[in-house]
Design a protein around this nucleic acid. Structure first.
Lengths: 347, 347
DNA sequence: TGTAGACCGGTAAGCGCTTTCCCGAAAGTG
DNA sequence: CACTTTCGGGAAAGCGCTTACCGGTCTACA
């Protein structure tokens, strides 16, 4: 069914609704979209009925312009296919729905240097907030660029929430990577392990570094230690874990336990072990980090540090909606919980 | 650094840039954002330099209004945390970046009835297109509502691409679920299996039904057959698979092979088997569908039907950017490829 | 030298809304 | 009953852009 007054083919505007209902633009606007002013009940009903009949949906862009604020929130992740990020995104989406916000997703495809550019795109959208998930790199120039972008956005009235990094003066969800990894390291030494190796992720990612450092602390405290040359770096992905494990095997260091700094890498490492005839957990123990839900059913069950990923997403959105105009940065700490499974039996 | 003419605190507009550069609005606009008209090189440089210095980012909403078209594309999925959807989303995101489009994500949280409402939200954004991923339900009323929403959107000049369903006259990526499941069923009978059970997913989802039907065909053709009462329905999730498998075990039908209509359910089923002392694949063979990449390393390796999920997402975006105004609906078929792994050894 | 035409800068209309202001009518008040 | 409020409707300004349209310069060509 075509709209009745078919001027610009097909697009029903508020003006169409107003005309059809025989009221002014102002009245139609007030009747349909919550306004402080009231509209007579009869007119309100008439306008609503016309709007429904014409399938009118307000042009959110025009509303945003006129109101000076919008209902979209930008969400930036490194890789939406990675369950770590998609879980957080799920939490964000859920909270977004509750608050009737729309989420614009940007994925940097793990090209960590392009974030500033992506943020600029989000800034162009004039969303009310953005949520930046994933740790930043150590690259000074890139970080400075980011800081600049974030500053411009916040000065323009936008709100920023960072998840899993602390480099910027914005609301932040701090993941206690060090503490979690330390607990894990401690737990593993308690289980009797002494000779460890680590698949450490990309050296430029702070999350990866924190987890490595925490793990070091955890095992050192118990008198354990890393084997020399037992830290292998590589991408934060399944294939990265596979490659790093393969490299580790080639070095022939005979660790008793391998800690992969995230579950996805751990799974890759486990696959590498299988392909090299290493039987798990008999020949080698493996531990990960994150407790990705889709990976909870692998065998042997992966010992890991559980992070409440969906909650973190929801929490981020919560920080967005509870933001006060001039408020100073808030910090929410999220701690991980060690989950011991079959991949690290007591020795 | 605050913008120089600090009228509306912090937000740099094109007018600010124009004023600062000493040119008109029109010239500034033409200089910064590709226009058919050219601008003298000296002015162009001056404007660009000012824009950079003031950290100007064009207001995409205003641009969209003025131009009458926008660069955002809506993406609707059932559950972004599900690797099936997040993989497709990753493909979409990648293609979006190539074409410099922004993606607004909506997740229905598997409340299949709320899609029309979500689509209306996307419609309000006046994006140039939307991509609807995931099969629709059999619910007539809901489907009719959807058809209506989609119709309104397309009449208003928006483009729609559907992935994995054929209920609407729009560009569609058809996943050959039936054919894939048929091939899988055939392959399994070839491997010597005769007594099958199926964990069938939600009966209202067309994808689930198609896979069940195809599987039936595949094994029937080879003279095999489903055990009576051997089709258990349940949610399309890991827990759904777990519950369905538990139910199946309780029925004590002694199947030789269980087909879960997606990998995520298959993993849940495998967990249920372990918890009930059923050793895989010795006591029971299991097969899935999708070939989710994060699940490729589970043991025993899961026999499944591989779907090019990321490619499907990219393809969807390709249909968006190559859309012709009055073109009739295009169909792209995507076929699955059977991947036999250790979970279904030859008998 | 005269003039058509390319070139390029500016002016202003308009995209679809919200919201301020104005104004007439109804309701309250002494 | 005269006067002040309150109520609710409409006209119009304006959000930040793009893009006709206009007009002044400069070049090219007869």
């Amino acid at each position: 069914m075509r709209p009745l007054n078919g001027e610009r083919a097909g697009v029903v505007t508020l003006a169409d609704v107003a005309a059809e209902a025989g009221v002014s633009l102002a009245t139609a606007s007030r009747a349909l979209n919550g306004s402080s002013r009231r509209v007579g009940e009869d007119l309100r009903l008439r306008v609503a009925e016309v709007a429904r009949r014409l399938n009118y949906a307000p042009n959110a862009q025009a509303q945003a312009m006129a109101r000076g604020r919008s209902d979209v929130v930008g969400l930036l992740v490194h890789d939406i296919a990675d369950p770590y990020f998609s879980s957080i995104a799920a939490g964000v989406m859920q909270a977004a729905e509750e608050h009737r916000l729309l989420v614009t997703l940007v994925s940097t495809q793990r090209r960590y240097g392009t974030e500033a550019e992506h943020i600029a795109m989000l800034r162009g959208q004039r969303g009310r907030a953005m949520i930046l998930v994933g740790s930043r790199t150590r690259d000074r120039d890139a970080t400075e660029l980011l800081r600049q972008e974030i500053g411009t956005f916040t000065e323009a009235g936008g709100h920023v929430v960072a998840v899993s990094q602390r480099s910027f003066p914005v609301d932040t969800i701090v993941v206690e990577n060090r503490a979690g990894a330390r607990l894990l390291g401690h737990e593993l030494t308690t289980l009797g392990y002494e000779r460890f190796a680590v698949l450490a992720g990309p050296p430029e990612l702070l999350t990866a570094r924190d987890r490595l450092q925490g793990f070091r602390d955890g095992i050192a405290r118990a008198g354990g230690g890393l084997l020399p040359a037992a830290v292998v770096t590589g991408p934060f992905t399944r294939d990265g874990g596979y490659a790093a494990m393969t490299e580790l095997i080639a070095r022939d260091l005979q660790p008793q336990c391998v800690f992969a700094v995230n579950d996805v890498m751990a799974v890759g490492a486990m696959a590498a072990c299988r392909d090299h005839g290493i039987e798990l957990p008999r020949d080698l123990a493996v531990a990960g980090f994150d407790d990705i839900s889709t990976l909870r059913d692998i065998t042997p069950g992966l010992t890991t540090v559980r992070l409440p990923l969906e909650q973190m997403g929801a929490l981020a959105m919560d920080l967005v909606v509870t933001a006060e105009p001039g408020g100073s940065p808030r910090v929410r700490r999220v701690r991980g919980e060690v989950v011991v499974r079959a991949s690290t039996p007591a020795r």
